[in-house]
């Protein structure tokens, strides 16, 4: 997966993945990105649009998430990764995501 992301972002493609990377995968992706940075590839912008934190959710929300996770697997959510050359910034808050392009 990480090799695929690096390969595609190097080709200046924006990737939208159905599912979310976990924190360890995100760290591995950052490491792989750093290893690949050169004159033509200054890195990536990434937004993982799935909060793993459920502590602050109401019981109803927690129950809903539990059922959805059981039905669709835990890796639901959305991950947007763009090449830093094209995407200036991915602005995010818990509910929105804005891609600022160069």
């Amino acid at each position: 997966m990480i090799d695929f992301i690096i390969k595609e972002t190097r080709k200046e493609n924006i990737i939208v993945i159905e599912g979310s990377l976990n924190s360890i995968e995100e760290a591995n992706l950052i490491q792989a990105t750093m290893e690949n940075i050169d004159k033509k590839f200054p890195g990536i912008e990434i937004a993982n649009l799935h909060s793993n934190n459920i502590e602050n959710l109401s019981f109803k929300e927690k129950a809903k998430r539990f059922i959805v996770n059981k039905l669709y697997g835990k890796k639901r959510g959305l991950t947007i990764i763009g090449p830093a050359k094209l995407v200036k910034q991915i602005k995010r808050d818990p509910n929105n995501v804005i891609l600022k392009m160069m």
Partner: peptide, 9 residues
């Protein structure tokens, strides 16, 4: 500092 991009420019 951790970052996902580093551009020498």
């Amino acid at each position: 500092g951790i970052a996902t991009r580093i551009d020498f420019e």
